[in-house]
Simulated assay, not measured.
Amino acid sequence: MPTTLPVPIEFRLPEGWLPARPEEFQEPEVAFAAVHPRPDAGFTANITIDGGFPKDGVSLAEIADASVEQLRAFAESVEVVHRREVGSEDAPALTQRLSFSAVADGARHELVQSQVYLFLVDTEDPHKRAMIRLALTATTAQHDEVLEQFQDFVRSVRPDNGARS
């Protein structure tokens, strides 16, 4: 059962990507998942969105470190390949790329996960900051092919204030 995000967001999926059916994604913390239309070597690239309200004073780097440790609980050879803080003081963000080996559908895959962490202000309580994590997981061979689509997706993410034009 998918969870809900701490703040509503809107986004545009890359062309061809499809929302995953809830039964396809059994990660309890995932609020939304989409899948690429063409699997690679039996693994389907996916985009996931999750988030929460971190404790006061917790940095995006600390949240990213915790994410690495969670991944190590079920994957092998987890390595932080790249990490960079981006954004501004008012809208901080962090990107990181992880490489790891994991079993999916009974087969071992060499995978890459690109993660983007965003802090968004809770519109109902501006003193609270919500964290949103956007992640792309793909095989090592397919990652570079789908990365630009993921970057376009990330650029489309915005707080949803309920206004429609």
Rank of each mutant, 00 (worst) to 15 (best):
V112S: 11
Q70Y: 00
S114D: 14
E85D: 05
V80A: 04
R72F: 01
V116Y: 15
L98N: 07
E110A: 01
L71K: 05
R84W: 03
A66N: 10
V81R: 14
V80G: 03
L71D: 01
R108F: 07
A66V: 02
I63Y: 05
V112W: 10
H109T: 01
L120H: 04
G87L: 12
E89A: 07
V58R: 02
V78T: 14
E89C: 04
Q70F: 07
H82W: 09
F100H: 03
E69K: 13
T95F: 08
E110C: 01
H82Q: 12
S101Y: 05
R83F: 10
E89L: 04
L98Q: 02
F100D: 05
S67T: 15
V78F: 13
S114W: 10
A107M: 08
E69N: 09
S77N: 13
A73V: 08
P92I: 10
V58H: 04
R108L: 07
F74Y: 00
F119R: 09
V112D: 07
V121Y: 03
L111R: 04
L71T: 01
A73I: 10
A64I: 13
E62Q: 15
V116G: 12
V80R: 13
S67M: 13
V78N: 11
V81Y: 08
H109S: 08
L98M: 06
S59M: 06
D65R: 15
F100E: 02
A75L: 03
V81Q: 15
S114I: 09
E89N: 05
A75M: 00
A107K: 15
E69S: 06
E85L: 02
L71F: 04
V86D: 00
Q115V: 00
L71Y: 09
E79V: 14
R83C: 06
V68R: 05
S114T: 15
A104F: 01
E76S: 14
A61Y: 13
Q70H: 00
R83Y: 09
F100Y: 03
S59W: 00
S59A: 06
L118I: 12
E79N: 01
R72E: 11
S99M: 00
L118S: 08
L118P: 07
A93M: 11
L60V: 01
R84P: 00
V103W: 00
V86G: 01
V116W: 15
R84G: 07
E110V: 02
P92Q: 13
Y117Q: 03
A73G: 09
Y117M: 02
A75V: 08
S59V: 07
E89Q: 04
S77V: 03
V80C: 10
S77R: 11
D90N: 15
V80E: 09
Q96L: 14
V78C: 11
G106F: 05
L111T: 02
L120C: 04
L71V: 08
L94R: 01
G57R: 10
P92N: 10
D65G: 11
D105P: 02
Q96D: 12
A66H: 07
E76F: 05
E62M: 14
P92T: 13
S67R: 12
V58S: 09
D122Y: 05
V116N: 14
D105T: 09
Y117H: 12
A64K: 07
E79K: 12
